[in-house]
């Protein structure tokens, strides 16, 4: 399988959110604004790529029986680095993301890619897999947050979209997230079904 295939599979065919249904907690929680989604994407991308590369490097040194604790330690390390970096340089975003940033450490997407792919493949392929998966995760976050912010707050990146329009605040709340995510699931399934046919 080519490197490009490894990269692009996480974006569409094996999209972690819409296809594998993983990591839904931050997807639903932090997509109230595009800024939050962007920075959560950046943090997840950093952790995914770093963890994948590092685990791929040490994969032959790690005994099978202790692989999960080792992988978890690696992931937690990179999550902590991301957390400290955001706390230092983007404190407002750090506060806005709240608990959803540290719980990246137990995000199924990250542990899943590390365990399922990086522990069995080379460094470049693992890095590209992490990059593709992170971008696939981020795309969903950004699209979902854009729709929620526009519909629920009548803003995009903080700028008002339509003067005088009264936004449907339910879209900013949890039901709105489920509603839009459901539509996205439906859209992806419809496109996939059409392609198969």
């Amino acid at each position: 399988m080519s490197y490009f295939t490894e990269f692009k599979k996480g974006i569409w065919r094996e999209n972690p959110v819409l296809v594998l249904n993983l990591g839904l907690c931050p997807v639903l929680a932090v997509t109230t604004s595009v800024y939050n989604a962007f920075w959560m994407t950046a943090a997840a991308l950093f952790v995914l790529v770093s963890s994948n590369i590092f685990v791929s490097i040490i994969r032959k040194l790690v005994p099978w029986h202790v692989r999960i604790p080792v992988f978890m330690s690696v992931i937690v390390t990179f999550v902590t680095v991301a957390e400290l970096t955001l706390n230092a340089f983007q404190p407002d975003i750090y506060n806005a993301l709240g608990i959803y940033l540290p719980i990246l450490a137990v995000n199924c997407i990250i542990l899943g890619r590390v365990e399922d792919f990086a522990s069995k493949n080379g460094v470049i392929a693992s890095g590209l897999d992490g990059l593709g998966t992170g971008i696939g995760f981020g795309l969903i976050l950004v699209v979902l947050s854009s729709l929620r912010e526009i519909l629920g707050a009548n803003t995009f990146l903080g700028y008002t979209i339509i003067e005088g329009y009264k936004p449907a605040s339910v879209m900013i709340m949890a039901p709105g997230a489920f509603f839009i995510l459901g539509l996205m699931f439906w859209g992806l399934n419809a496109i996939s079904s059409e392609r198969k046919a």
């Binding site: 040194l61 202790v66 604790p69 080792v70 330690s73 690696v74 937690v76 390390t77 902590t80 680095v81």
Partner: peptide, 13 residues
């Protein structure tokens, strides 16, 4: 292996 991993984590953090 576990000790080395933890040492790595602690150092980076």
């Amino acid at each position: 292996v576990l000790i080395i991993t933890v040492a790595f984590s602690v150092t980076i953090i």
